[in-house]
Nucleic acid binder design. Structure first.
Lengths: 130, 130
DNA sequence: TTAAATGCTGGAGTTAGCTCTAAGTCAAGC
DNA sequence: GCTTGACTTAGAGCTAACTCCAGCATTTAA
């Protein structure tokens, strides 16, 4: 799979795919003889994983650390687990905060609905009294 | 209330408070005769609102638009409501995505736990066989 | 077999959102 | 009155995360 196919498949710009690899967010992608990227199943898996994690707000730096640990093999299992736990906990807190804000927005929208209805009534009254 | 008190109260850096005001995220704050900021209850309310919305990921630009509409009075009620609905919907989607990622992280953490246990067993075996 | 499209790299440029600096003003304690 | 620390502004600087560009190589369609 060449880079533009991967780009389409995951809706990630080509430049971003190269950037992620350059920054070590993805283990080096397999290449053809002439040096063109040729994504394997596993390479695609990494792309998808990174897309998902970035979407949830994990930083480039954190993900680079994770991949670096991954590259060091089994002796980093515990460290990787700890990193994931820390990120999971942060994510949980962000979701919590966002849910509160969601509720607040919903409340605000309701208030606006009431105010708009009240405004319209006011307008009708004025028209009738003319 | 002066700027450093507000900064402490909401855990927002002083520079950020000034920046928000400069960018029009907060209606102009009341001043003392000599020109120092003197936050009223309402000013504080805005600060808190902006903090909450920024925390949920609403952009500076979006919030500026909202405040601009607010400044134009009642005839922008419908527009403000529509803006809030659009942001609410985006927020919902972000939360949804993040919840999927949270579940995925939890799954991954469990897998790590199993792998770590398996690794330890392996080590014990080796020690015994010595 | 040649033109057009696509790929490569290193490095510069961009954007959002702050964060800091300089140079000056104001306020509170001695 | 003077010093010290907090406040003011305009504008520069910073960081994360891309995004674009130049200049060159490779692949593909005509």
């Amino acid at each position: 799979m060449n880079i533009s196919e991967v780009s389409k498949k995951y809706s990630i710009p080509i430049d971003t795919l190269r950037y992620y690899e350059k920054e070590g967010l993805i283990p080096p992608v397999h290449r053809t003889e002439s040096g063109l990227r040729d994504y394997s199943e596993q390479d695609c898996g990494w792309v998808e994983f990174i897309k998902c994690m970035r979407g949830a707000g994990l930083s480039i730096d954190t993900l680079r650390q994770y991949i670096t640990l991954y590259g060091k093999g089994n002796r980093t299992l515990q460290k990787r687990k700890n990193l994931l736990i820390a990120e999971r906990d942060k994510l949980k807190m962000r979701i919590d905060e966002m849910q509160h804000t969601l509720a607040r927005l919903n409340g605000k929208i309701e208030t606006y609905e009431e105010r708009i209805v009240a405004c319209e009534k006011e307008l009708l009254k004025k028209r009738k009294s003319k």
